[in-house]
Computed example of a mutant assay.
Amino acid sequence: MPLTKPNQQPRRDPKEAEALLKWSGVDLMQAAVRLSEVGQEDEAKELMILALSYQAMEDKLAGYADEVRVGRINRSKPE
Rank of each mutant, 00 (worst) to 15 (best):
G39C: 05
A44G: 07
L52H: 08
D42C: 05
E43S: 00
L28Q: 10
S24F: 12
L35H: 05
L50P: 02
L47F: 15
A62S: 12
K45Y: 02
G25P: 00
I49C: 05
L50F: 08
S24H: 03
I49S: 10
Y54V: 04
D66E: 14
D42Y: 08
E67H: 07
E43H: 01
V33F: 06
A31T: 08
A31P: 00
A32C: 13
L61W: 09
Y54E: 10
L28P: 03
I49W: 08
L47N: 00
A32T: 03
E37R: 13
L52A: 15
I49G: 05
D66T: 06
A65P: 08
Y64H: 12
M29G: 07
Q40R: 00
E37C: 14
S24T: 08
G39I: 05
D66Q: 13
S53G: 13
A44K: 01
E43W: 09
G25K: 00
A62N: 08
E58S: 06
G25Y: 04
S24A: 10
E46L: 06
G25L: 11
E46V: 04
V38D: 06
L50M: 14
E58Q: 15
L61F: 13
A32W: 00
Y54A: 14
S53Q: 13
M57E: 06
L35M: 14
D27Y: 12
R34V: 10
S36I: 01
L47Y: 07
E46R: 03
